[in-house]
């Protein structure tokens, strides 16, 4: 946390729209939309964020429906629930957390595109529940609504559709609720293809979400350290090393 007082979306307050800027942000309420801060982002227990988030570090104790990006580290604490992908040089998932998505342990090369905010969906009266993110907006429009050149879209964006069996066997009620609000699957390469084209993963058995039991989602999920050649640049301070005790047993 920086010395500046962190911003706070308290419990009981809902934001339909986007949040971005400088400093740290604590979300204890409900945010429907993307968040991007250059400081620490904390999603507290009891909070709900539906939208992609990006911070220097991201700590998840509440619920996030969307992708999480961090310049330094992402922590999903034991009370955290995440339906979406995580991308950061350091990722830590504490046992007890519920997580459905892919893990990309790698540095962010460019700022990831986040969901665009459409003011037409958020009028003062008669606010409907916002529609799910359209694939085009999620992939190709920045937080400010400016088109992003396709070649600048970061590599971690492609994701494989979630296996249907995972949805069917999902037993956690809360996660199921999130699932029902799932946006249509984005057009992206299959998971198999991603493995082939992402040699940075030390091993599929360790890096892939298959390490999580799809029925219980009780993750003894641990993210291995990135391969040496993909270590973050030296300027990136090292924060939140993956702890050894959470490491998935080899073999």
């Amino acid at each position: 946390m920086s010395k500046q007082k962190p911003s706070l979306i308290p419990a009981g307050v809902r934001v339909d729209g986007e949040i971005e800027g400088e400093g740290d942000l604590i979300v204890a309420g409900h945010v429907e939309g993307p968040i991007r801060v250059d400081g620490t982002l904390v999603i507290e227990e009891g909070a709900l964020v539906r939208g992609h988030v990006h911070g220097r570090t991201v700590t998840l104790r509440g619920a996030l429906k969307g992708d999480a990006y961090a310049d330094e580290a992402i922590q999903v604490q034991a009370t955290g629930r995440l339906v979406g992908d995580v991308t950061a040089p350091r990722v830590r998932v504490v046992p007890g957390a519920k997580f459905a998505g892919q893990v990309h342990v790698q540095a962010l090369e460019v700022a990831p595109p986040l969901r665009s905010y459409d003011p037409a969906l958020h009028t003062f009266t008669g606010l409907p529940s916002p529609e799910p993110i359209s694939p085009e907006l999620a992939r190709g429009v920045s937080i400010r609504g400016e088109p992003i050149p396709v070649d600048t879209i970061p590599a971690p964006a492609p994701k494989a559709p979630k296996p249907a069996s995972e949805d069917d066997e999902e037993s956690n009620a809360t996660t199921q609720q999130f699932r029902t609000a799932e946006p249509p699957p984005r057009e992206r390469p299959s998971r198999r293809r991603e493995i082939e084209t992402a040699p940075t993963q030390p091993g599929p058995a360790e890096a892939e979400p298959e390490a999580v039991d799809p029925e219980t989602l009780e993750p003894a999920l641990t993210i291995p350290a990135p391969a040496p050649k993909r270590r973050p640049p030296a300027r990136m301070p090292r924060v939140g090393r993956v702890r050894g005790e959470h490491r998935t047993p080899r073999g």
Binding site: P6, S7, I9, L25, H122
Partner: peptide, 29 residues
Amino acid sequence: AVGYVGPGLVVRGRVSGDGDLRCDGTLEG
């Protein structure tokens, strides 16, 4: 639990709820 939008933060959209809020940043919506 006073909500707070810090000086460097921008919120665009609709803010609603039952709490108090102080905005030292920018709130458009």
